[in-house]
Simulated scan of single mutants.
Amino acid sequence: MGGAAHNPVRCCSATPSGQDRLRSPDLLGGWVSAAVSTFQLKQPTTVDHSEFPLRLQVNAVAQDCYVKEAASVWRRLRGLLFSPRLKPDQALWIRPCNSIHMLGMRYAIDVAFLDGNGVVLQVNRCVAPGRMATCWKARSALEMISGACETHGIRPGAKLSMNR
């Protein structure tokens, strides 16, 4: 079939420099082997949880979620502002706290409001940047990346505890 068009196609894979590559359809097979040799495989590393020293338990079952506490006035006021995006296994526990704001945030979060005994009173899922969430009876709030409350089984009535 000598009449095949030779139009470049955009590959969805990023190059080491972070840019997309333009390749011809007949070169795509060669690109795969070149990409494997270009990227170096990293050995798995142990995750450092020193910044998140507490471990979350939901209904007395330990979760793969590590928690940082914000108890000082400055840490509560700052919250997640100016910090890197939370990972699915990280959370910020703000106490005392009965409302949160998302002013200046760049990503959505889930917020679980807790009473003084650690029982979840309310869960606000996917609180978008620029919004607020309030639970007047709450004594503390647990902020997680959007979708993490569902993943860890956090729902109203669940008993949460943070242990070292």
Results as ranks from 00 to 15, higher is better:
Ser33Lys: 02
Pro156Ser: 03
Arg131Thr: 14
Pro84Phe: 00
Glu143Met: 08
Arg155Tyr: 10
Ala14Arg: 12
Met144Lys: 01
Gly2Lys: 00
Arg106Asp: 03
Gly79Cys: 02
Ser37His: 05
His49Pro: 10
Val47Leu: 14
Leu114Gly: 14
Asn7Asp: 13
Arg10Met: 05
Val61Ile: 03
Phe39Asn: 14
Gln43Gly: 07
Ile109Phe: 04
Gly30Cys: 03
Leu92His: 01
Lys159Val: 06
Trp74Val: 06
Ala138Val: 10
Val127Lys: 03
Arg164Gln: 05
Asn98Ile: 03
Gly118Val: 13
Tyr107Ile: 04
Asp89Trp: 15
Val67Gln: 13
Ala14Ser: 13
Val47Lys: 03
Leu27Glu: 07
Gly157Ala: 01
Thr15Phe: 12
Cys11Glu: 03
Val67Pro: 14
Met132Ala: 15
Leu28Asn: 09
Pro156Trp: 02
Trp93Lys: 13
Cys126Leu: 06
His49Met: 11
Thr46Glu: 14
Trp93Ala: 10
Ser99Cys: 14
Gly153Asp: 12
Cys149Met: 05
Arg106Gly: 03
Ile154Val: 10
Pro88Gln: 07
Gln90Asn: 13
Val36Cys: 09
Met144Arg: 01
Asp64Ser: 14
Lys159Ser: 06
Arg85Ile: 01
Leu22Gln: 06
His101Thr: 08
Ser33Tyr: 00
His49Asn: 13
Ala91Leu: 04
Leu28Phe: 07
Pro25Gly: 04
Cys126Met: 11
Ala133Pro: 07
Gln43Leu: 07
Thr45Val: 12
Thr15Ser: 13
Ala158Tyr: 03
Val119His: 15
Leu86Met: 11
Thr151Tyr: 11
Ala138Glu: 08
Ala5Lys: 00
Thr46Ile: 12
Gly29Asn: 09
Gln90Gly: 12
Ala138Leu: 08
Ala5Val: 04
Leu41Met: 09
Leu81Pro: 00
Arg55Phe: 12
His6Cys: 11
Leu121Pro: 13
Cys126Val: 06
Ser24Gly: 07
Ile109Tyr: 01
Thr45Arg: 15
Val127Arg: 02
Ser72Pro: 07
Cys65Tyr: 05
Val58Ile: 02
Thr45Gly: 15
Arg23Asp: 02
Cys12Arg: 13
Cys65Asp: 02
Arg78Val: 14
Leu103Trp: 13
Leu56Phe: 00
Arg76His: 06
Trp136Asn: 01
Pro96Phe: 15
Cys65Arg: 01
Trp93Met: 04
Gly79Glu: 03
Ala62Gly: 08
Gly118Met: 13
Leu28Glu: 06
Ala141Asn: 08
Leu114Asn: 09
Trp93Arg: 11
Ser99Lys: 11
Met102Asp: 11
Arg10Ala: 02
Ser140Asp: 08
Glu69Ser: 02
Ala35Trp: 08
Trp31Asn: 04
Ala4Phe: 09
Val32Tyr: 11
Lys68His: 03
Arg131Met: 04
Leu77Cys: 06
Lys68Arg: 10
Gly18Tyr: 07
Ala141Val: 01
Val36Arg: 02
Pro25Met: 07
Arg21Met: 10
Ala158Gln: 01
Glu69Ile: 00
Val120Phe: 01
Gly116Ser: 15
Arg131Gln: 06
Gln43Met: 08
Val9Phe: 01
Ser140Arg: 05
Pro44Val: 08
Thr38Met: 09
